[in-house]
Write a protein that binds this DNA or RNA. Structure first.
Lengths: 217, 217
DNA sequence: ACAAAAAAGGGTGTTTTCCCCCTTGTTCTT
DNA sequence: AAGAACAAGGGGGAAAACACCCTTTTTTGT
């Protein structure tokens, strides 16, 4: 006689149909797991949650890069409205900023899509049982952020404006006149920024500005 | 009695194990297809081809974004050494440049990973039978490229290298010594680039480089 | 084979950038 | 009320960036 086992109920949210349908096959091939639903973006997933407030689900696999409503926005909604949901973020990129955003919004795990099925299964079990699963590299990023958070640089309005001008082909003299300041004041801005940002040239300032999205390209 | 059918032999090259193993399950669920091999990057795939010159394979599914040896480099090798291989490029992004590079290097199809399994199967059949499969949007990009090709700026290897150095805090003198050229030659590079790219300062060069992804930030 | 580009290097001079040290006033603390 | 912190401005000088015009050598097209 066969005993009926209650399988863990999984929902996949991913816009890549090829991946999402394939992943469903993989998960269903695991004894204790079954995919009960798939959604192609955060919006339809959230709609489904709203329509089914008593939905039983053990784990959400949430893609980070999606059209319509991406992983981060979806995670924010989950944090606000359904914080008990267990979510593992799935992504192809290991951008620190994104990892941090997903985790601070309540993701219980962050896996790259090049994870092996074994690790993947382990992560699912860990999140369902222990409540979280983080690889060493993700933990490392979290520690690093914690350290860096203390010595954070905050720029004033005028500095931001100056940086934006510096990211053009104008000379400092031209910038000064556009900002209605003396060239010598601009000189001061530059030196104080070089010091603060640990750079040595205007090129460094441009690179910093782009990296930190002070100017967009 | 069951008749033995020769299935189409497929190879998957993709670094995302989760995707690649799952996709194998999906393909094997199609009657006429079977995955005979999976590789995690272009390098190991090429090694396998070299070790098995008489390998019978009907179709390669090649991921574009991979570590070690990416899709484009792998495609280049295939074009040089094994041009009869039928390859469908798989990618998450629809960057025109990349699509063009893959196709000019001989890819017979280009599919986004959010394709439905039905279209995916149709594409596989089309490439095996007719030799190609392109969606309308990909065809559109090819037409557009044909038109734009006339007024294209093409940079030489050394210029690219110089631009990359210019996007650092090094001085031209330092760049010259790192590139083993006289500072005066670097001077020439700069002036010719300023002219070609219609810019006036090194800042403009940095912005151009970032916009055109010559350097990454 | 020969002209035409292109690549490499040079000279000289101007402008811009960068650096260090300085003054004056204001605001905020303690 | 003294001191700290900051915003605005300044002088002078060295180094880097930029401009313009030049020669020599190598590559390339036909």
């Amino acid at each position: 006689m066969m005993r009926t086992i209650t399988k863990h109920k999984i929902i996949i949210v991913d816009d890549h149909q090829l991946f999402s349908q394939s992943l469903q096959l993989l998960i269903n091939s695991f004894k204790d797991f079954e995919v009960i639903n798939r959604f192609e973006n955060g919006k339809v997933f959230i709609s489904h949650l709203q329509d089914n407030p008593d939905l039983e689900v053990d784990l959400i696999l949430l893609d980070v890069n999606m059209p319509v409503l991406d992983g981060i926005s979806t995670m924010k909604w989950v944090k606000e409205n359904n914080p008990n949901l267990k979510v593992i973020a799935l992504s192809v990129n290991d951008d620190e900023e994104i990892i941090i955003k997903m985790i601070t919004n309540g993701a219980k795990g962050y896996l790259l899509k090049d994870t092996s099925p074994e690790i993947f299964k382990e992560a699912m079990i860990s999140v369902i049982d222990k409540g979280f699963y983080f690889t060493e590299s993700v933990s490392g990023i979290l520690v690093k952020k914690a350290n860096n958070d203390s010595k954070k640089i905050n720029l004033k309005e005028k500095e931001i404006l100056f940086i934006q001008y510096a990211c053009t082909e104008k000379t400092y003299k031209e910038i000064a006149s556009e900002m209605c300041l003396s060239p010598k004041t601009i000189d001061g801005y530059r030196e104080s920024l070089f010091d603060k940002l640990e750079i040595k040239t205007r090129i460094g300032l441009v690179l910093y500005a782009i990296k930190h999205k002070i100017v967009l390209v």
